[in-house]
Design a protein around this nucleic acid. Structure first.
Length: 467
RNA sequence: GGCGCCGUAGCCAAGUGGUAAGGCAGCGGUCUGCAAAACCGUUAUUCACCAGUUCGAUCCUGGUCGGCGCCUCCA
């Protein structure tokens, strides 16, 4: 049994096997750094993260590359409007993006690469495409002639047969009933950043960077190329045209696309004013791991309608798992081992794996965890859970958290040291023992005010910090 | 118009040709000095609607209605 993934190219779920032993060559489309990442972006990147983690969990060696698009129309326009150099402008947002990724607990990719540091590779690719007759020039810009590439449309499953090939269309006067040729190299404009190239000074078009960088670091054929579904056309279609036009080989074996996150049942947009950034949500008091859980818990091919109710539900769900982990670590259990519970843990792990293997069905994987947590909680209540079962129970939680990673609270409130809490808890326990409930309730309230929640168990009191 | 996705309880959501996982919320209990946590029970005779195939369909086919996305920059 192995991983099965839905391939946009074939519109089917397929067994995933890398072309070269157990090494996976993967490329994911990263951000254009012209503003802060919003939760829609983050959904796709969360999907990337879950995919990476699961591939690793299944013992694949990952060679994954993510790009940073740091030259693009909006970037140029905004940096010019601010009167600062493009690099300075993009740097601040790239930094913010990397911070956000850390906040979201994303595993860093093998390589994070910038478009502006790969201009020579892009130029070389365009030259090669030129030699092979895929390009034509117009007003100093270089265009890709899709009519020369027979496979054009195979990813988006569009039939472009009726389109007049090679018709020269200015991007600004784009006529959708006509050619879909796209720009590889934009002619230099006054005051704008540019690079030198044999075919004229200018800057790269959007699509060429991914083809050039993916090929450079991963070779002609990738095992996986992933990104948001809105990139499927034209971006990924164009990447195929460029890369395969150049190499003559299949560009990517698996194309994975993450569905959109919606807000109020429609795509986020500035005009609707329904864009939320991670930073805004954190400022509102939402823990980042709550956002992570919400984004990860809905399977990636399903549209996810963001809501604050959903965010609250995510927080409660995490809380329950944390309570369970706390109980597991602090309660005392009778000696011995329950074999049925050991078997139960094995089943939980198998069910979790099966869910994840099935095209990263996180909802199913989560269900396996919750069912197990409920069963073991019941066993603990009944006294059937033994000290010898703790290790396997921890393994289940660790497996879960190695993918979801939400158990550790983000905010470490420095305020009250553990020792001080322990002292107060001890004082309260004594008061409670003496039936001085007034004093014991007082201390409990006091601790709560300082962000510490106290819980009584049959073996005494335990505490946790409020998240 | 073309391409693609979707419509399962209050909300989120899994799922299979044979009779509906899981999470959140709600209600009723157990436990508790009170809480908290946890557990138990309960909440869809039903899976947008219609027709067909079938012994049998939420899952297959056709159609209808509804929602969303891409086709222009976009995660």
């Amino acid at each position: 049994m192995g991983i099965r993934l839905y391939n946009s190219l074939t519109l089917q779920v397929e067994d995933f096997v890398p072309s070269d032993s157990n090494a996976v060559r993967m490329y994911t489309c990263g951000p254009t750094v012209y503003s802060f990442a919003h939760i829609g972006n983050l959904r796709t990147f969360t999907f990337n993260d879950i995919l990476r983690r699961w591939l690793r969990a299944r013992d694949f060696v990952l060679h994954d590359v993510m790009n940073i698009t740091d030259v693009e129309d909006k970037i140029i326009r905004n940096s010019m409007a601010k009167g600062i150099p493009m690099g300075e402008y993009t740097q601040q947002y790239e930094k913010a993006f990397i911070e956000d990724c850390a906040t979201m607990r994303f595993v860093p990719p093998w390589r994070l690469v910038r478009a502006t540091e790969h201009i020579p590779e892009m130029v070389a690719m365009i030259e090669k495409l030129h030699e092979k007759g895929f390009t034509y020039e117009s007003d100093g810009s270089v265009y890709y002639r899709i009519g020369r590439f027979p496979g054009y449309g195979k990813l988006s499953h569009n039939d472009f047969g009726g389109i007049r090939a090679g018709a020269r269309v200015d991007v600004d006067e784009y006529d959708k009933d006509d050619a879909r040729d796209f720009v590889l190299w934009k002619a230099r404009k006054e005051n704008e950043p540019f690079w030198e190239a044999p075919f004229g000074n200018g800057r790269p078009g959007w699509h060429i960077e991914c083809s050039a960088m993916a090929t450079k670091y991963l070779g002609d054929t990738l095992d996986i190329h992933a990104g948001g579904i809105d990139l499927l056309f034209p971006h990924h279609e164009n990447e195929i045209a460029q890369s395969e036009g150049c190499s003559g080989k299949p560009f990517a074996r698996f194309w994975l696309h993450c569905e959109h996150l919606l807000v109020d049942f429609s795509k986020m947009s500035k005009s609707l004013g329904n864009i939320y950034t991670l930073r805004e949500l954190i400022e509102m008091g939402h823990a980042p791991e709550t956002v992570r859980y919400l984004l990860a818990s809905v399977p990636y091919r399903k549209k996810l309608n963001f809501s604050f109710d959903g965010l609250k539900a995510a927080a409660t769900s995490i809380e329950r798992l944390r309570n369970y982990a706390l109980r597991l670590n602090t309660d005392k259990y009778p000696d011995g081992v329950s074999e049925p519970l050991e078997a139960r843990a094995v089943k939980a792990l198998a069910d979790f794996d099966a869910g994840m293997d099935d095209d990263l069905n996180t909802a199913e994987a989560l269900a396996a965890i919750y069912e197990y947590v409920r069963d073991t909680n019941s066993a603990m209540d009944a006294g059937d859970f033994k000290a010898g079962n703790v290790a396997s129970a921890k393994r289940v939680l660790e497996k879960f958290d190695s993918v979801f990673e939400v158990l550790a609270p983000s905010v470490t409130e420095g305020a009250l040291p553990d020792a001080a809490i322990d002292a107060l808890v001890a004082e309260r326990s004594l008061a409670k023992k003496n039936k001085d409930f007034k004093r014991s309730d007082e201390i409990r309230a006091e601790l709560l005010a300082m962000g510490v929640i106290l819980e009584d168990t049959k073996d005494g009191a335990r505490w946790k910090r409020k998240s």
